[in-house]
Every structure is written in C-alpha cells, then in structure tokens.
C-alpha cells in the first residue's frame, strides 16, 4: 500500500532580492516520490538540493514565506494543511536534524511523552526507552546533558512513540561515527519492518545503502532517479542517470574520483531542462529545454533522455 505519494511537488520562497522587491524562487521543482508501507526509501541529495524542504513540506511546517504547489497524497487522500495538522505527531512523524528542535528547558522524558499533542503514559515511555537502550535516568535529563548518540536515540523515540505510519527522518546520521550511524539506520529499518513507511533524508549514501529498499536521488531541487538499493553496487552501471553514477563512483570506497570536466557541480537552477546538463558528458540540445519526462525502467524510474 502506498502511504505517501508526491506528484510534481514544487516549493518556492519569496525573498527580498534587493531592498524593496520580493521575488519568488523555486527551491524544489517537480519532485516525484512515493513510499509504501513497510518500505524504507532513502532520499539522497547534496547540500542545498532541497532535502529538508521536502520533509517540511510533507509535515506542513514550511516557513511563513514559503509556498508549495503539486500534490501530496497520504494513503490516497490529498494532504491539505488541515489534514497535516491533524496527522502531525500521530500518523506523521518527523525525526528532526538536531537537538535544537527540543525544548532546552524541559526534561527529555516529558518532551517525548508530550510529543505530537497527546500525553503518553510513563510505562509506555519506559518501554520505549528500554528498547532504544536508554536508561531510565535519561528521562529526567535536559537536552544539553545528552551525548550525540543518546540524543539521536531520544529523537528517534520521539517520533516512534505514537506508532506513526509515516516517519520522515532528516539527516539522522550526520555527525555520527560509522557504528552509531549504522545503529540509527537499523532502528529505522526495524520500524519499516513493523509496517511503517520510512523516508530517510540524507547526504550520506554509504550509511543508508545496506538498509534501504529504494534510493531516490535528488539533484537541483528535483528527483532525478529512483532505483532499488541493489542498483548501487559494482561499478554502478545499473544506474540510469549520469549524476547517480557519478555519485556512486565518487564514494571513497569506490574510485573516489569526481566526474571529469568542470571542477564544480552547481545545478542549473532553471525549471526547464535537466539540472545536470552542464556537467553531463552526453548532454544534448534536448536536455536544455522543457520538462525531462520520467521514464520507467525495470524497478525504478529516471528523468533522463538518454536512459534506456
């Protein structure tokens, strides 16, 4: 069952571009994505590709000067601001990027119990903390007293206490060393195995790869490829989009070589054409204009003209 389906999502901001005039800028552009129950989908993207915005758009917590267009369907139902408000913290859960999302003046246990509006019982919390290997004294600690690993586990438990059906985690592994990162991703895998749909947003392909069902590659504000995780293996020839392939070869455990040609990678920002066209070896005139159609290939899809 598809829990979340995102069709043609664009997110735009109105910002001052000089002292008096405002301009609307698109930060996400025609994004497509879907997650099913029991699935763990990793969204991979470079910094500034709009990963966090995706999470905030689904949760309905975009900043006040942002707007969005497109369709987001939660279990086939259109996600409206009212519906988001109702589901948020119950069926929809966000695991935020850092402790700065916690109230620094409130004991951790209390915050976790109160997350999502309803107050949960202490026994429920206790069993949840035990499951994540958090001792009972952690309940009475304040956020600044937690170590990096504990903090991450507390954040995960915040989102999972309510039995959420869709869990979105924003950069859950950043700044963690390999073992802890692995442990964190494993927690999300467990949640997916219990029937939740999990969307894991990260820039760190390596740590999520062993646990993800599918990988969605974000570039320049749009999803350019969704592929099953096992496509990311060997020399990456199973991947269809040249950017995904470049991402794979650039990993330290593979060739660790950046793509040839221009030294920097800054996506083309215009809505039309492929955002990777400036760096792609096989880019043609057709890559410059119009919306590049989504092409279904075997188990995933890709947004590239050359894909076979």
């Amino acid at each position: 069952m598809t829990v979340l389906e995102i069709r043609n999502l664009s997110v735009f901001f109105s910002r001052y571009y000089n002292w008096f005039r405002k301009r609307t800028e698109a930060c996400l552009n025609g994004l497509e994505l879907s997650v099913g129950a029991g699935q763990l989908v990793a969204v991979i993207g470079s910094s500034g590709s709009g990963k966090s915005l995706l999470a905030h758009a689904v949760m309905g917590i975009l900043p006040r000067n942002a707007g969005w267009s497109g369709q987001m369907l939660y279990k086939g139902e259109l996600l409206t601001p009212q519906l988001q408000q109702r589901l948020r913290g119950r069926e929809l859960a966000l695991v935020p990027q850092s402790v700065s999302y916690l109230n620094p003046l409130m004991q951790v246990g209390k915050q976790v119990r109160m997350s999502g509006g309803g107050v949960r019982s202490r026994t429920e919390l206790r069993s949840m903390f035990r499951r994540y290997g958090l001792e009972s004294q952690v309940e009475r600690m304040y956020p600044f007293q937690l170590s990096g690993g504990m903090m991450r586990r507390v954040l995960v438990s915040t989102a999972t206490l309510g039995g959420a059906e869709l869990i979105i985690a924003d950069e859950p592994t950043s700044g963690l060393h390999a073992e802890l990162a692995q442990e964190t991703v494993m927690r999300f895998r467990e949640l997916a195995d219990e029937g939740s749909a999990v969307l894991l947003i990260t820039h760190d392909l390596e740590s999520v790869l062993p646990y993800a069902d599918a990988i969605a590659v974000l570039y320049g504000g749009t999803s350019i490829e969704v592929a099953p995780a096992h496509y990311f293996s060997g020399d990456g020839t199973m991947l269809r989009h040249p950017y995904s392939r470049a991402l794979w070869t650039a990993l330290p455990r593979n060739e660790f070589t950046p793509p040839k040609g221009k030294p920097l990678v800054r996506p083309a920002r215009s809505a039309a054409g492929c955002p990777y066209r400036e760096y792609c070896e096989s880019a043609s005139e057709a890559c410059r204009s119009g919306q590049i159609p989504v092409r279904r290939v075997n188990e995933g899809w890709v947004r590239c003209i050359d894909a076979t």
Binding site: S46, S47, S174, W248, F256, T257, L264
Partner: peptide
C-alpha cells in the same frame, strides 16, 4: 575536522583531490 562530512560524495571527492 569532519571537513566534508556534510557534503555529498562528488563535492567531497573534488575538494579532497584539490
């Protein structure tokens, strides 16, 4: 100090090569 750990793999590789 974790110079490239917030960056994607391609940027990381480029920066380190330089």
């Amino acid at each position: 100090d974790e110079m490239t750990s917030m960056l994607d793999a391609i940027t990381q590789a480029q920066i380190w090569h330089a």
